[in-house]
Each structure stands twice: as structure tokens, then as C-alpha cells.
Write a protein that binds this DNA or RNA. Structure first.
Lengths: 217, 217, 217, 217
DNA sequence: CATGAATGAGACTTCATTCAT
DNA sequence: TATGAATGAAGTCTCATTCAT
């Protein structure tokens, strides 16, 4: 009946309000990646989100809290997905590792979220509270995830016995390298720069390191 | 009597003046590594160099130019040493690679110069002209150097045929990861953080990757 | 049954609306006394009155007008009571003065209204139009009241001949001092502060000043 | 000889620098009295002192510290003078009290410094740290001073036995009343206001209260 | 050459006020 | 009437840069 027609007019303001935090987080991520934390201006975050300076402070009490919200929104939930992937997988550890690295690249490295790591690396010394937060929230869980897979491979006799933590770091390093590069030199108009093609590097890296891990027949 | 004054440039006052730019660059390197570019204050650079704020501006016309001078002064000479090492070496390519990575770590990665790389990664987008300079002066030569060694190994039949550029990147990545880490989280008092021990990681990485490169017997 | 609903204006919803301005004035008085005019925030006035910020502006067009309404509402009726007391009294002038001062303390000095005086003293220079209003409405009538009693005492031969206006001011000063003190230092947690006990000060003051006024036997 | 002519040109900059804190304190006192602490703008303090916004912060690290410096500069030294006066005096206690009150009025009450008390009364609840500071630095010493004189009069049999602290408060109250009034309503253009003439009020107050204190012959 | 007092643009943040719903 | 999300002017404070000495 005609009662269903009543709906649309009441929505915009409310829908707008609901969407604000999301819009602000997206604008903030974008600008933080471009400029870094210190050099990013709160005015411009607001402007890119289509709101005024004051509105930003309605949702986040300070620039630092805004940044932490960006981290949580973009990274915290992704770790859990990785854990799930590992839990459900029942192929070989080499395949699992390949799958995990490729997924990481698609879901994080190749995403605006990867820029966060660049920012944190650069500015964490000026925000001690952030160091602890990011370590607890991102670095430790990610490290645990990759160590677990390496240990699985060793336990199942697929990999040589090697120090899991160092192997995990060596596994991640090229991905992090690319992710960071993408948001620094990769975003600059440089002539004749070293061009890293992610998919090829990922393939080569896996080829190299999985072969390095495996026990000799 | 007065004839002994014949070497005026060695008088302490004079030497002090001559050394000013050098002292300022050292103080700036130290502080930029600690705080990053934006958060470092010119007052403190001057204070650490033992001069007044005004004096800084006699030698460098702006904070930005000071930063560029720091980059140039610390990086431009480093690549040449590597080239020399490679030219003189006549052992196996595996040994050369191991030697090269270990030397890089000792001479650059484990040095204040590594802090520069952290800053450049983080802030190059705010200094467009720096991007080209750093790419030409540092990144490209380093890449060429490592590519050369990989190609040498392949040509001599020591390594499998693999894309040299990607292998070179995969080789460098963990070293750069560590170097950057050292100047960010490594300098923060974080409880329960992931602890990377450089020598062990380097050993594991070489073990992994050289085995991955070598042709099967 | 439905006939009992005959008094619609007493329904809770309606009473609530009628009471709004009153509730807002009470909340505003409370908060202005605590924080002063400048530091009091309109959000909190509204919140304490149980309404939204917007509603406040339906009743008072600005913070400044709200403040003036608070002043008017709390002070305008007070002087008349004093006049009545004086008119009905027929004991000695000393007794009348004692009665008047004690009543002032109970009805005004020891009341939130005294807080208003503190605010007005402090901020009247920022509200030029308030100065005239408060002078006409509060200060002059109060002065007239006290002068009248002093003159009565002189006329009846109970007091020495003294300038009535100055005596009236000297009479009021300690009461005003206490009233203001109560709303400033009296409300702060200060260690080892000078502690004024109102009843004792009032007694001592009357003892001192009535004896000073009386004619020598 | 002509060597003495060399002097004048080297002075202005340095003399200027020496005078800065003093000039800033005077401008600050003036503006704080006019507007109160919260409503006074640091820009305007600087402008009235003839310097830029930034220069103010070269001498005082925050608005609050500036205010405390104003208090110290204008009040703290005056208490000591009062103590000295009391110590050296050897007339009657009535004369001492009269002398003390008249001196207080000339040196503080009738001076820009009196405005400070108005400000503190009004805003101390918003600056808890200031409450303690002002109580320790100003109120307690002043109270001790006046109590001492009252007790001297009682001990020497000149005054009746009365509670010294309350008497001291009653003594000070009209002076404080006038001092505060001077900086609030006294500075507003009000028509037909109650006009307190300080010298007359002081005379009447002393007449009243000294007579009230003295023992009956 | 060297100094350091002075500047002033600009950063983050607050809050009285408005207005679409 | 009532709401509360949104605004933006204005406040305190910082810091790269200048310039008289």
C-alpha cells in the first residue's frame, strides 16, 4: 500500500550520520598515507570527508585517537581472517605459506591500509603510546600467525629445522618492503626508478624461499 | 717569533669554523633519525652542534635544504665501496653474496645512515625533488650492484636461472626491514615486542636464500 | 470516567513544558556559580535541565540573554521583603539592624543568589548593559534600605550622628565578603586556608559595629 | 675624549630586552583586570606591551604562568612591607590599625593591583592550582598580619577580648569591598550608582570599628 | 661570521549558535 | 516544540625564519 512510500524522506540525515565515522576514517587513511601523521592537517581530513573541521572532533577526540581508529579499522580485523585461513587449511605447509602470503598481499599490501605501516615506522618514536598499541594490536599477532605456519611445516617434516621466528621475518620482509615502497617512492613521479612488479617479486620470493625451506629429497 | 703563525688554517678558532657545516650535519642526522623531519626542531639541531639558531641559517638556507644536505653527505660515497668489493672478489657467487650482505649490514644497515632511509621512505612524498635524487643516487646503484652479483652467479652456473632483479630485491628486503626497524620500534620501549636479532636473521636469511638459489646437485 | 480529565494543563507533559524556562534558569544559576559566565558551557546547562542544546535557544536567544534572565529571576524579588521587614518593625534600631543583617545572610548571602553577585562583580565590565540593570535593580535599593535604618537610629537618638551612606556600606561589606568568599575560595579544596565561619563573623561584626554606633551613656 | 661617544648606540636592543618582562606584566595586569583571566586574550596582552604574540611566550610559558607572575610581582612583596611597619611601630594599637588600613589602601587597594583579587575571586574555581598558590602567597600572610595587630591590642589592654580572626576579617572586609568594587562597577559608566568615596568610607569605618574595639573607660 | 630576540603564519582544538528533521 | 549534528570563528601555543647588533 501507500504506507511504504513514506520511508525515503526520513533517511538522508540519519544515513549521513551513520556514515560519518567511516567516511572520516577513509579520508584520514588517505591523507595520513600521503603526508604522514605529523604533516597531515586535521582540516584537510575533514574537508576530504566533506565535513567541517569541528565535525571531525564530534567523532574523534583528537588527531591521535583518529589515527588509532584508522589502525583498528584497517588492520585489526584482518589478522583474525588469517588465523581462520590457517586453521581450516589441510594441504601442505608450502601451499599454506604461498596462500597466506598471496592473501596478505591482496588484502593488505596491495591496499591503502599498507600505508599505515609506513607511517608507524616513521613516527612511532614520537608517540610512545602508539608504539605499544601497534605492537600489541598488529605486529605480535601477525608474527604469531606466520611463526605458527613455519612450525607446522617443521613439525610435519616438510621443512628443515630452522629458527621459526627468523624465518617468519624473512618471509614477511619482502612483502613489507613492497608495501612500504608502494606508499613512498612508488607514489612519486621518478624517472628511471627501480620498478618492482609485485606479482613477479612474490612469485620469485616464494620460489626461492620455499625451495630453501624444504628438506632435500 | 711571529713566523710560527705561518699555518693560519690550523688555529683552533679557524678549525672550528671550518668544521661547522660538518658538525651541523652530524647533529641534524642524529636528530632527524630520532624525531623524523617534521618533528625535529631547528633550535635543537643548532644546540647539539653547539651553535646558535641563527648560525644554522648561515650554512643552510632552510630546514629542507639541511635535510637534503644530510642525505647527500651520508649516502653518496657508500655505493662505490660496494662496487670495489665486487670487482676484486674471485670466490664463488654464494660467498660473494654473503660477504656483500654482511658488509652492507655493517657499513650501512647498522649505522645512522640507515635512519636516513627510514626518514626518506616516510617523507619523500612531501619532498618531490628528493625522490629523483635519492632514486638516482642510492636506490638504482644499489640495485645494479646486487643484480650484477646474481647475474654473475647464474652466468657461472652456480645459481638457477631466475629473474635477477626480483632476486636482488628479495635479497635486500630483510636487511632493509631490519635497518628501518632498528630506528623505529627498535628504539621504543615496548613491552613484549617482537625482537629481531640482526645476526641471527642475517644467517637464517642467507641459509634460506642461498640454498634456494643454488642448482640441485 | 473521561470527565476527570477536565484539567488538561496539569498533565505531566504539559507541566513539563511550562516548567522549562524555570528549569533552565536553575541549571544555569548552578553552573554559572560553579564556573563563571565565560567558562560555563551551554551544552551543560541544557543537559542539567534535561533538554537538548537546541531547546535552550528556543527560550533564550543567546548565552548572554540567559545570564541576564538568571540575574533578573533571582534578585528582583528579594529587596521588597527587606522593605517589608523594616516597615513592620518597632523595636530598637540596633535590634532592627541585627535582624536585618541576619535575615540578609539567611535569605541571600547563604543562597545561590550570592553566587550571582560574585559573577556580576567579576564580569560586569564585559556586559555594559548589565551594569545599569544590576545597579538600579539590586545595589541602589539595598543601599537605600540600609541607609534608612541607620538614619532611623540617628533620628531616634539611638546612634551617633554619622554619615549614613558610609555606615551602611561598612555594615554590608563583611556580609558581601563572606557571600562572595563562599562561592570562590570556600568551594576550593585548599590546604591550610583561612577559614571564615559565617555565624561567628556575623556575631563579631554586629558586636563591633553596633557598639561603635551607639551613643555613650 | 671622543671614545665616550661610542656608548649610546649599543644600548636600545639590550635595554629593550631587559624591560620586556616588566612591560608584559603591566600589560597583563591591565588586561586581566579589564576582562578577567579567561576572557583576556594573550594576543592583546602582547600587543599592549608592544610585542608580538610569540614574544610573550619567550618570557612566560603559558597564560596561567603569566598570571601567577603578575600576582607575585604585584602582591607578594607588599606583605613584607606591612610586617615591617608593624614591627617598627610603637604607638597605640588603634593608631597602628589606622595606619595599616590607610597604608593598605594607598599601596594596594587604590592601585591596579587590587584588580587581581577580583579576578581570583571570580575564577579560582576553574584553576585549582591557582587557589593554593594565592592562598599561600597572599591570603594567609595578610590574615596573619592583621590578626597579629588585633592580638597586640588585646594583649596590651587597649582592646576588648574578642576573637582576633573574625575581627581581622571584619576590619579588612570594607577595604576589599571597595577594592573589588573599583574594578567592577566602579569602572562601568552607570548612571545614578551608589558612589563610595574611599577616604570617607575608610574614616567612617575606622571611627566605627576602633570605637567598637576599645574598652569602656 | 655569529648571535638570539623577535616575528607571525599556522597548527590543533573548543564551543556558541544554527537548522534540517 | 524539540532535537542534536553540523558549523566555523576564535583561542592558545609552536616553531621556521629573519635581522639588528
Amino acid at each position: 500500500m501507500s504506507t511504504t512510500v513514506a520511508e525515503p524522506e526520513s533517511a538522508p540525515r540519519q544515513r549521513r550520520k551513520q556514515a560519518r565515522p567511516q567516511e572520516l576514517l577513509e579520508a584520514a587513511l588517505e591523507l595520513f598515507c600521503e603526508k604522514g601523521f605529523a604533516a597531515a592537517r586535521t582540516d584537510e581530513v575533514a574537508r576530504r570527508a566533506g565535513v567541517s573541521k569541528g565535525t571531525l572532533y564530534l567523532y574523534y577526540p583528537s588527531k591521535e585517537e583518529l589515527f588509532k581508529a584508522v589502525v583498528r579499522h584497517n588492520l585489526s580485523s584482518l589478522i583474525a581472517e588469517g588465523q581462520e585461513l590457517v586453521g581450516q587449511f589441510d594441504g601442505s605447509s608450502s601451499e599454506l605459506l604461498a596462500k597466506l602470503l598471496r592473501t596478505w598481499w591482496q588484502r593488505i599490501g596491495n591496499t591503502p591500509a599498507a600505508g599505515i605501516h609506513k607511517i608507524v615506522l616513521a613516527e612511532v618514536r614520537n608517540f610512545p603510546e602508539l608504539a605499544q598499541f601497534y605492537s600489541d594490536e598488529v605486529i605480535l599477532p601477525a608474527d604469531r600467525l606466520f611463526c605458527g605456519v613455519v612450525e607446522r611445516g617443521i613439525a610435519r617434516g616438510e621443512f628443515r629445522a630452522m629458527p621459526a621466528h627468523e624465518v617468519a621475518t624473512a618471509l614477511m620482509a619482502p612483502l613489507i618492503f613492497m608495501a612500504v615502497h608502494r606508499h613512498s617512492f612508488g607514489a612519486c613521479p621518478v624517472h628511471g626508478s627501480v620498478d618492482v612488479e609485485p606479482e613477479r617479486l612474490l612469485g620469485t620470493h616464494l620460489d626461492l624461499v620455499l625451495r630453501g625451506l624444504e628438506r632435500r629429497g
